[in-house]
Structure formats: structure tokens, C-alpha cells
């Protein structure tokens, strides 16, 4: 197992190199002039343009620019944006917001999704089961942007329960965006749990558990849920990685200064270094949590061994 993890961790390096190069190339290929974009409508002197172009190697070919970027990376320098602020500082400022948002979303996804799925799976075709089926269908069929506006309108403006934008209210401000961000995965977790529980309830070993004279609660918790939750837990694990990178819409709509909104703004203003840094980080999260999931799988299911 240890060797397997080490091998997988080593594999992350070439993947990240490849990913960052691809992103770099895409940013490089973006039409338009980032320095003009920086200046906006104000006039800008040719001398300044020249200095900036020189500083950011903008006239060099792609591979030279990328090489310069890599050299910086090795010394822990992610470069600076056109205003001279280090990208690392930008990440340090925005990442905590995204992490908090992701935590809240995962919490909703795990708690609500699991409880709904377990209850639906235990009493299939019951009232709760149908409620879960209908509500999850509705949730997944509404685009997240629409869902966000509905949530803001209903819970934020009409009912006034939760703040609809910004981080001034601390954790409280993360409730609505967390719920919106989690919605799709939440519905999926509920469905996955329901199917898995219903399937496991019919398993031969559950019949054995009953033949052993175990109390019903133990038959369900120890012999049904434990097995049913393996695919669910691993899905949630992998979803942490996706949510950390998938918060662009949510952060923008709810005006949360996280890495998602930052990358969105940076693409518009053609801040290449910021985009490359943040997107590479997102790719890293994604790969890392997939590794966590694979390890988790082996921990939860003794039939799976990697050595």
C-alpha cells in the first residue's frame, strides 16, 4: 500500500507538468493584448508597453515563456500578475474562501444526501422514497445558475433567512452558496445511496445477518449500510476535488472572493500567470482527492488490494 501511494504521488508530477503546459498554451493562444486590457480605456504610453512586454517575456515563443515559468516554479515562485502582485499571494487570499465553501457544500451533500438516500433505500416505494426521487429529478434538471438565482430570491430576498452575497457574515454567508454548489452532487449522492442500500438489503449476507438473530438495527447499520456506503463515500471523496474546481459559477453569482471567481476574472483580464497557477492548483486537487479515494476504497473494502 505504501509503495502504491508513493508511486501515485510521483505520478502527480508529470500530470501537473502536462496540465500546466496545456493551460499555459491556451492562455498564450488567447486573442487580444493583455497590456491593453490592463489599461482599459486609459491611454498607455508605448514605453510602458515595452517595459511590461519585456518583464513578462510576452514576445518570446511559447516554450521559452513556459521554461521561464517553470524555473520560477522550482523556487516556489508562481510569477506575478501585471500589477506586480505575486500569484501566490492571490491564491493565499482566495483559497480559504473556496475551501470554506467546499466544506459547507460537502457537509450538505454528505448529511442530506446520505440521510435521504438511506431512508429512501430502506423503505423503497414508500412516501420518502418517492419524495426523494421527485425532488432529485427536479434538482438535477435545473441549471445551477437558475438554481442560484432561485435560492437568492427565495431564501435571501423573500424570506430573508440567509445573506445572498459576500463573506461579511462569516460562515453564515456560505450557507446558500454551499447549498447551491452541493445541489447536483447531493441529488446524486441520494440516488446512489438509495440504490446501493436497496441492493444490499437483498444481499445474501443480509439474510445471513437476520438468520444470526441480530437486532434489526444491527442488520441495517452493520450489515447493510457499512457495505452500501462504500461507493457513496468514494464518490464524495472524489467530489471534493471537483467542487474545489467547480465553484466558478457559484462564487461569481454569490460574489465570494474565492479561487473560482478569481480565475473567472483573470481569464477576462488575460492575467495568464494567475490563470495558470490557479487552474494547475485545481487539477492538483482533483488528482489528489482521486488518490485519496483509491486509498479509501482499499481501507473500506478488504477485497481491494493494490500490492
Amino acid at each position: 500500500m505504501g509503495r502504491y501511494i508513493a508511486r501515485r504521488l510521483l505520478l502527480i508530477i508529470p500530470v501537473l507538468l502536462g496540465a500546466s503546459f496545456l493551460i499555459f498554451a491556451m492562455v498564450y493562444a488567447l486573442p487580444g493584448d493583455p497590456i491593453r486590457a490592463l489599461a482599459g480605456d486609459r491611454p498607455i504610453s508605448p514605453a510602458v508597453v515595452e517595459v511590461l512586454t519585456e518583464r513578462f517575456n510576452l514576445n518570446d515563443p511559447l516554450w521559452v515563456q513556459y521554461w521561464e515559468y517553470l524555473k520560477g516554479l522550482l523556487s516556489g515562485d508562481l510569477g506575478t500578475d501585471f500589477r506586480g502582485r505575486p500569484v501566490l499571494d492571490t491564491i493565499e487570499r482566495t483559497l480559504p474562501v473556496t475551501i470554506r465553501l467546499t466544506l459547507v457544500a460537502i457537509l450538505f451533500e454528505a448529511v442530506i444526501g446520505l440521510v435521504a438516500g438511506v431512508l429512501a433505500g430502506i423503505r423503497r416505494n414508500g412516501f420518502l422514497d418517492n419524495l426523494v426521487l421527485v425532488s432529485t429529478t427536479v434538482i438535477v434538471s435545473i441549471p445551477i445558475l437558475v438554481l442560484a438565482f432561485i435560492a437568492q430570491l427565495l431564501f435571501g430576498l423573500k424570506l430573508g433567512w440567509f445573506p445572498i452575497a459576500g463573506t461579511r457574515d462569516g460562515w453564515y454567508g456560505y450557507v446558500l452558496p454551499g447549498l447551491v454548489l452541493a445541489s447536483g452532487s447531493l441529488a446524486y449522492v441520494a440516488r446512489l445511496t438509495r440504490t446501493s442500500v436497496a441492493e444490499n438489503l437483498r444481499a445474501d449476507y443480509v439474510r445471513t445477518a437476520r438468520a444470526k438473530g441480530l437486532p434489526r438495527s444491527r442488520v441495517i447499520v452493520q450489515h447493510t449500510l457499512r457495505n452500501s456506503l462504500i461507493p457513496v463515500v468514494t464518490f464524495i471523496g472524489a467530489d471534493i476535488g471537483s467542487l474545489l474546481g467547480g465553484a466558478i459559477v457559484t462564487e461569481t453569482v454569490f460574489n465570494l472572493p474565492g479561487i473560482g471567481r478569481e480565475v473567472f476574472d483573470s481569464i477576462r483580464s488575460q492575467e495568464g500567470a494567475v490563470v495558470v497557477g490557479i487552474v494547475t492548483l485545481m487539477v492538483f486537487f482533483f488528482i489528489f482527492f482521486n488518490l485519496v479515494v483509491d486509498v479509501l476504497y482499499a481501507v473500506l473494502d478488504p477485497r481491494i488490494r493494490y500490492d
Binding site: 444481499a203 445474501d204 449476507y205 439474510r207 445471513t208 445477518a209 438468520a211 444470526k212 438473530g213 450489515h223 457499512r226 457495505n227 462504500i230 473500506l300 473494502d301 478488504p302 477485497r303
Partner: peptide, 18 residues
Amino acid sequence: GPGISMIFQDALSSLNPV
């Protein structure tokens, strides 16, 4: 368990894998 007990045909699927 203590009174009546039962064993099944397919022991692999009848034992809990985890």
C-alpha cells in the same frame, strides 16, 4: 442463533465481504 440456526448454499455471498 441459540435455538434454530441456518446455513446457506453459497458461503461466499452469504458471508459479509467487509
